[in-house]
């Protein structure tokens, strides 16, 4: 394992992500292969690549939905999966992981809203249960966030009464309610009808422009990636094949694999 450094919690604001020699396998299948990646605080990184290349798994290990097998991940100055016990680096306790995880949030392709709650209740739940806000404070915060994503008139609607684009915007508001320093987006427009993609991308544009958080997103919206990303990573077989500013990757990619992937995606 690489050298692990420890330091105290850092204040709020966008946080950097540091991944070193991260390996993740499902049985025999190695999905992340000695992956090292640095994302600056406030940076917008878009990950592209063929399906099965491991790009979603990067987000899932940062979110702790899958645990890494080797290497380390730091969010800001804090180790995500490791802590120091008796002067020795060890795998972190659930308590430590929960503490660091409070800086991270994730939006999913299939929204994963709580179907038995209204839009407002979806957004209120975590601030009340995790951040200790009272009902009134959480309701006010939920209203502000749902207004921000253009759903101020849908507060009491259940997910079943909302369109796909509206559901995804509620999911984004729900994540924002946790005031994350790092936000992960996993193909958040892939499950939407084409005419609903724009409304979600507009919200993402606004978030990216605010610079309040570091954003990592997996997307097939190449136009959006080119417009919004500070950096694009081309991923293949559990490794970063190439990376660079959007213009470089989209106009003048280095690798044949990137060229053929972009050709296939852009021809659709």
């Amino acid at each position: 394992m690489s050298q692990i450094e420890y330091s105290p919690p850092t204040p709020k604001g966008a946080a950097s992500i540091e991944m070193r020699d991260v390996t993740k396998a499902f049985g025999e299948l190695v999905v992340l292969n000695d992956l090292s990646l640095d994302v600056d605080a406030g940076e917008v990184v878009v990950i592209i690549g063929p399906s099965g290349s491991g790009k979603t798994t990067i987000l899932r290990v940062v979110m702790t939905l899958e645990r890494i097998d080797d290497g380390y991940i730091k969010i800001g100055d804090r180790q995500l999966y490791h802590e120091e016990k008796d002067g020795e680096p060890t795998w972190a306790s659930e308590k430590h992981i929960r503490s660091v995880r409070s800086d991270i949030s994730m939006v999913f392709q299939h929204f994963n809203l709580f179907p038995h709650m209204s839009a407002r209740q979806n957004v209120m739940l975590a601030p009340i249960k995790v951040k200790g806000l009272n009902e009134d404070e959480a309701a006010e915060k939920a209203k502000i966030l749902l207004d921000r994503v253009g759903l101020g008139d849908k507060l009491d609607h259940r997910p079943s009464e909302l369109s796909g684009g509206q559901k995804q915007r509620v999911a984004i508001a729900r994540s924002l309610a946790m005031e994350p320093r790092v936000m992960l987006f996993d193909e958040v427009t892939s499950a939407l009808d084409p005419e609903l993609v724009g409304e979600v991308l507009n919200v993402l544009r606004e978030l990216a422009a605010s610079g309040d958080m570091t954003m990592m997103m997996v997307t097939h919206e190449m136009g959006f990636a080119r417009e919004m990303a500070d950096r694009v990573l081309m991923f293949d077989r559990g490794r970063i094949l190439e990376q660079g500013p959007p213009d470089q990757i989209f106009i003048d990619p280095e690798h044949e694999r990137t060229k053929s992937f972009l050709k296939a995606v852009l021809s659709h």
């Binding site: 939905l65 994963n112 709580f114 729900r174």
Partner: peptide
């Protein structure tokens, strides 16, 4: 996905079950 959404919101396991 409901379990995963609860993890991303950092809900405790007891809250995840109950809520």
């Amino acid at each position: 996905g409901q379990w995963e959404a609860s993890t991303t919101l950092n809900l405790k396991i007891k809250t995840t079950w109950r809520s």
